[in-house]
Write a protein that binds this DNA or RNA. Structure first.
Lengths: 343, 343
DNA sequence: CTGAAAGCGCTAACAA
DNA sequence: TTGTTAGCGCTTTCAG
């Protein structure tokens, strides 16, 4: 339909796609005017705007954002880094982040480190190479070297799902230490006395159960038992961990799991061996994933507003990219304990 | 540490980052030679390679892939489009796709249509604008107009999770019709006579249960009951759907769910109301997600190798991008029925 | 409000 | 094997 390259002048390849020049020629304006019509339509006369709009429609022009990004040093690309997208917790954050960014004309690039720190550096390099307008770090422990590069690249960074005292740049999360304490207090308040923790082997989880165990002891309870499972946590590892836990000490009357999926595993195993929840064993999860409310019994868990984290991260980055200074660079979204049947 | 722009010549901004020119100057070679050293190291003398490598290390140079992509018309970017990443099924495909691409130096851009067709066009535009080396379409129904644009843009496309007779370009999936038939035959073979279907309201799911119901009738069974739930399917919708199903017809003795999550909902509801699985009700899922095997009872389900789909899609696109022609453009990965306790 | 010139940082074409 | 030159397609300066 559209004319293929016909001019046998000489030299380079040309991708063959319609360019802004083609549009401009058709609209009988200079390329820069066509550019303005598309990017800042209110700085162009209505008539010109109309002509350009028509030309775009007629040619099926799609702006080359690579070229635009190169020229303007604004890529409208945002990178997100997660250990694995398959883990239960970060998914909603990524979902909302993507959606919020798309609504503003930004795209998300996804990177997975796979819980292997060495991948992190390579990934970071690939990401920086794209000159994204921002990077969202989710649930990862970044090396000092990685922080360096990020800082050096001058790319806005949002760390999420945590509240570190020394953020690289911006931060949206909540206190894992507070979560641990609150859960210990909650279970103690419900009359539970022999607590246990089942936790993924990541750093954040460690901080939660560290605080949990400390708080339990401070409340006069015996040191809670601890079972660690490899991250990402699964239903299967929850079942196995409960077996292990009960084999070591059958008197446990409450388990705090580091994810709802783990808790579902505990629920499943309890059911399989006829252990009554919550009568004999109270079970608490973490995350308040979608399924938590509909389990039987309903899962008592720590609610984290994963979507809000994603949205706030998007807001942070877009603000920065548009040149608006971000007043408050740290947002604590908090958490809450949702009491349902399992505890 | 590194020198900021000092030359007060005139004109443009310069991003401030280290460029290939800086590296080349330091290594005392021409920029193009430095480029070769980085991209095709074997076409450069060992000595030059060494000098360039050193210069890169000393400057902390990170290639600008926007510029590279613009010049070479190869962005090393691949776009994936899913309805929502939060749905249970596509996650593993995306995970493997990302991982496989990263291993080859490609990055993934994620786009969500949110089950709204109008979003699809806007998203497509944003994607095409990045000039990706490929697009992976997962679980979406693309409009004729969308197909047009994709074709016109000349970007390699891989459709996944399906086997359409008229692929846009490349295809990796399996037959949903075959799945429906196989499940009907399986349940019939296990002596089930009053079948039911619980399905998300997406097109693919409809094809599965269409074939399922047809096959059931062909086997001499009564027309299976059908309960439709909105996509994406959840545990909660599974519970609700079972209630609905039993209210309409309590004699049902087998349910085929259009996702494992839905099946988990059915299992949960059955347990809550003391309905014995599989004795009174056989439950089958779809997907064989990670948790399926560890449920109690274990979930009998249709196994789809979601990871393999992602890997094959990556292979397709990389082959194309590297200019190697793809011989077989359609791959049927098939499926299998995994028999566990629930049916 | 519109345009001419210059160049973002890189690599494909030729040469040498 | 290395270099020269000319752009990829867009947007920023700086003028009108």
């Amino acid at each position: 339909m559209s004319g293929p390259p016909a001019n046998p002048k000489r030299s380079r390849r040309r991708s063959g796609a319609v360019t802004l020049h083609d549009v401009a020629r058709l609209a009988e304006v200079a390329p820069i005017t066509a550019s303005r019509a598309l990017n800042t339509p209110d700085r162009v006369s209505p008539e010109v705007l109309q002509r350009v709009t028509d030309a775009v429609r007629r040619t099926g022009y799609v702006p080359n954002l690579l070229a635009g990004g190169l020229a303007s040093t604004r890529s409208r690309l945002v990178a997100a880094v997660v250990p694995t997208i398959a883990g239960p917790v970060f998914l909603q954050t990524i979902q909302s982040l993507t959606a919020a960014l798309e609504a503003q004309g930004y795209q998300l690039m996804l990177g997975q480190t796979g819980y292997v720190d060495s991948r992190e550096d390579a990934l970071l390099e690939a990401i920086i190479g794209r000159r994204p307008d921002g990077i969202v770090l989710t649930g990862i422990m970044h090396s000092a070297h990685g922080r360096q590069r990020l800082l050096a690249a001058g790319i806005p960074v949002v760390e999420t799902w945590d509240l570190t005292p020394t953020p690289i740049d911006m931060l949206v999360g909540f206190s894992h230490v507070e979560v641990g304490r609150a859960v210990a207090a909650f279970l103690h308040g419900r009359g539970r006395r022999r607590l246990a923790v089942m936790a993924g082997d990541d750093e954040r989880s460690a901080r939660r159960h560290g605080a949990f165990r400390q708080a339990a002891v401070a409340l006069g309870l015996p040191e809670p038992a601890l079972v660690t499972v490899p991250a990402p946590t699964t239903l299967g590892s929850g079942r196995a961990a409960l077996q292990q836990l009960l084999a070591a000490d059958a008197s446990v009357d409450a388990v705090f799991c580091s994810s709802d999926l783990l808790a579902l595993g505990v629920l499943t195993e309890a059911q399989a061996r006829g252990l009554a929840v919550p009568a004999q064993l109270a079970v608490m999860g973490f995350g308040d994933l979608e399924f938590a409310a509909d389990l039987h019994p309903g899962l008592t868990t720590v609610r984290i507003d994963s979507h809000a984290i994603g949205r706030q991260a998007a807001r942070f980055i877009v603000e920065r990219a548009e040149g608006r200074p971000v007043a408050e660079r740290v947002v604590d979204l908090g958490f809450s304990i949702v009491e349902r049947g399992s505890a």
